[in-house]
Simulated scan of single mutants.
Amino acid sequence: MRLFNCRKIKDRATGVKSAARAVTGGRLVVIPTDTVYGIGCDAFNHAAVKALLAAKGRGRDMAPPVLIGSKRALDGIASDVPDSAKDLIEAFWPGPLTVVVPYTPTLTWDLGDTDGTVAVRMPLHPLALELLKETGPMAVSSANKHGQPPAETATDAKAQLGSDVSVYLEAGPSEDNLPSTIVDCVAHPPQVLREGALTLEQIRKIVPDTLDRDGYGPGQRPEDQEADEPGETADEPADAPSEETSA
């Protein structure tokens, strides 16, 4: 188990090489991304993915997303990518967007119970992209034990994950501790499964009919329709709600 301070040029080069060797060897690594730190492994190594889930305390029903180092890499793992996903990728990759798309049936990976789909993201972080170009697609989840807060540094991740991880790449505190926004593009219309660093409004600017987490389309939420009733406006409701609703 080693931690490399990748803010130093010498340690960065050594750290990336060590992390790449660890991934190739079926071991776990912790890397920075443009959202939170992630724990990752070779997406095609069944034992490594199983170890990743065990390290986090998760089961097969919570399959990890896959990070890739270029938009082109999506062609190697996904088939019949919906137009909604293509449009969102064009707008937000690299960046804090995860899209759920069908994966190529001939792939030999085992990420868990995914029902033929994969959640994919291209992160906007130079260190993560550098490593991904060495390793190819990696299964990556937030670097924390299930139920604990996401790590904002590799040192924080080490305190939670310890010797389960072979290499930690430290690049300083996360710029944004919000996770990526996940959009299920297999669904018709697509639906936001988790609103994170990208808002629903930003997603709908690209794909207007996207459903929110509760399955409502634009203008379909009860509060939106109530505001359209006679005597009410969106800015001045006739009767203000007694409690705030969760976003």
Rank of each mutant, 00 (worst) to 15 (best):
M1R: 04
F4V: 05
F4Q: 04
C6N: 06
C6Q: 02
C6G: 01
K10E: 14
D11I: 00
D11Y: 04
A13L: 15
S18H: 13
A20L: 09
A20I: 07
V23A: 11
G26N: 13
L28G: 01
V29G: 05
T33Y: 09
G38T: 00
G38E: 03
I39S: 01
A48W: 08
A48Q: 07
A48N: 08
A51G: 06
A51D: 12
A54S: 09
A54V: 01
A54R: 10
A55N: 00
A55G: 08
K56L: 08
K56E: 08
K56F: 03
G57L: 12
R60A: 10
R60G: 10
D61H: 15
M62P: 00
A63T: 00
A63R: 02
P64I: 00
V66K: 04
V66L: 09
I68N: 03
I68H: 00
G69I: 03
A73G: 09
L74E: 01
D75H: 14
G76D: 11
I77K: 05
I77D: 03
V81L: 11
D87V: 12
L88R: 11
I89N: 00
A91G: 03
P94W: 08
V101I: 15
P102G: 07
P102L: 09
Y103V: 01
Y103R: 10
T104K: 15
L107T: 11
T108M: 14
W109K: 00
D110Y: 13
T114Q: 01
D115A: 15
V120C: 07
P123G: 07
P123M: 03
L124T: 07
P126M: 04
P126Y: 04
L127A: 00
L127G: 04
K133T: 07
E134Q: 12
G136V: 11
P137A: 07
V140M: 08
N144C: 08
K145Q: 15
G147Q: 11
P149S: 05
E152K: 14
E152A: 12
T153C: 06
A154T: 07
A157H: 02
A157E: 02
A157S: 01
A157W: 02
A159C: 07
Q160G: 09
Q160S: 11
G162R: 13
S163K: 15
Y168G: 03
L169I: 14
E170A: 03
A171D: 15
A171R: 01
G172N: 09
P173S: 14
D176V: 13
D176C: 14
D176F: 10
L178I: 05
L178H: 10
L178Y: 06
I182R: 04
C185F: 04
C185I: 10
H188S: 15
H188R: 13
P190H: 04
Q191N: 06
L193W: 06
E195Y: 02
G196K: 05
G196E: 06
A197R: 03
L198P: 02
L198D: 06
T199Q: 10
K205R: 14
D209A: 12
T210L: 10
D212I: 03
D212V: 05
R213I: 13
R213P: 00
R213C: 09
Y216S: 01
R221H: 15
R221V: 09
E223H: 12
A227N: 08
E229C: 12
P230C: 15
T233F: 09
D235R: 12
D235K: 09
D235G: 00
P237Y: 04
S242H: 05
E244P: 07
T245E: 15
